[in-house]
Write a protein that binds this DNA or RNA. Structure first.
Lengths: 245, 245
DNA sequence: AAACTTTTCGTAAAATATACGCTAAGCAAA
DNA sequence: TTTGCTTAGCGTATATTTTACGAAAAGTTT
């Protein structure tokens, strides 16, 4: 029943990207050590004078080389037995600390994939792996990933995070494919389009696709301020019109 | 840039109850110490071999004397400057530990208020304070409370947590008043009733109010398995019928 | 008995969601 | 050049849900 004094705190980050077809997660390949799983989530122990969030930002900006715009906390993973002794030993060696227990906070983040980012990440030993190809991960990182996926699905239905994963200009079909990939459903393209346009936060650019073997689609952009206006409008009008038991 | 080794981990819990009119939070009055705020949230340092969640359960079951059925994690509060030095000193004294930094995890929980619970809590130095009467709290507990309130609102619209706060048997009006208290809105009683009945998880008991100066209302109970069936039904049918941008 | 209060049942209109037909615009193959 | 294939994009009819209220019912208080 004694107070714990020799524990450490870390962050582990699930960074999602969308390549137009499938949802991908950024994984780090760590050097071989005994028989430990090689692939892990990007993470770090926290430093003296930073918050958990700042630690997560540090980890992600280091591996991507860019500013992270969407980053949220998941859960805290504090099972005293969450790390096997060999994993704990790896951590002691890597960070040169004596610790009996590592409590970690999961974060999930979204980025727009582009050539520049892909290049930077691969220089840093990172790999963008499609979520449905991930079988095993180091430590309890598979658990953290599951938590992130659940959060992503939930958020996708409630706030406009899809646009964090798409390029600035995108077609309605790309948007729809993203929804289908994340939620694992098929959607009717005509109704999907109607729903997306109904709130008026998609702005036509006038530009169209080129070189596609079918009618070229128009590119749209997401107007965040129009979105905020629409949300306010809804709140003024309906009371609880958006609950769903 | 060094790794933190001398920090501690704690939990702080926001326990909500509903007295039929207003939403209340359980606060603890701590002994006077310098000029620190007296009222704080129930909390504790974590022990060697328990998870954060287990620590929260321990704290809440100790102060209420009963099993806690609804308990969820909020956020982690890790600002290195979240505690003033006098608050930190208080913690060092209370727990007899040398620590430079206390990172805390917020939890929020729901209970049904009854006479028995009220009595037990007041023996333990706890007080049920209406949320809108809380001006200041110790440390950053006001911040944790805000986080809990935001979470409560969000959850109230998405899952049937209202029934965790009401007695087993309740009238539709009581249910409505709870919604109004938590969300801070006024609702049309006829439409509220329709909405609540539409999913079919409210079961009539046949019992009615007695001694009220108007038409007596019937008591209902929440049928959790009917609720689960209704949710499944919805998922089979609609695709994304419950997103709300 | 009249007044008052809250419960409870209804109903009509408005707004949203769903299912699906059909044309448009590009490329590729014939 | 024509035919076929594919996805984009428009429209419409029907079903479902939400919203705004009217009014009766069942008690207590005056």
């Amino acid at each position: 029943m004694s107070i714990q004094t020799n524990q450490s705190l870390s962050v582990d980050c699930v960074l999602f990207g969308f390549d137009g077809t499938s949802l991908r997660v950024l994984l780090i390949e760590r050097p071989a050590y005994n028989n430990l799983e090689r692939m892990k989530l990007p993470g770090s122990m926290i430093h003296q004078s930073e918050t958990m969030l700042e630690a997560a930002v540090r980890v992600l900006e280091s591996v991507t080389g860019m500013k992270i715009h969407y980053l949220k906390q998941l859960e805290i993973f504090s099972d005293p037995k969450r790390l096997r002794s060999d994993e704990l030993e790896w951590i002691r060696q890597k960070y040169q600390i004596q610790t009996e227990r590592v409590v970690t906070v999961g974060y999930y983040a979204l980025v727009k994939l582009d050539r520049h980012l892909l290049a930077h990440v691969s220089r840093k030993g990172g790999r963008w792996v499609p979520v449905d190809e991930i079988q095993r991960l180091a430590m309890d990182h598979k658990l953290i990933l599951s938590s992130a996926l659940a959060m992503l699905c939930r958020e996708m239905l409630l706030s406009p995070i899809a646009f964090e994963l798409l390029p600035k200009k995108f077609t309605i079909s790309e948007l729809q494919r993203l929804f289908e990939a994340v939620l694992g459903v098929e959607l009717d393209n005509r109704n999907f389009r109607k729903k997306m346009f109904s709130s008026g936060f998609l702005v036509a650019t006038g530009e169209k696709q080129k070189g596609v073997a079918h009618k070229p689609a128009e590119y749209f952009i997401f107007d965040r301020s129009a979105y905020r206006r629409a949300v306010k409008e809804k709140l003024r009008m309906g009371f609880i019109d958006n609950w769903r038991y």
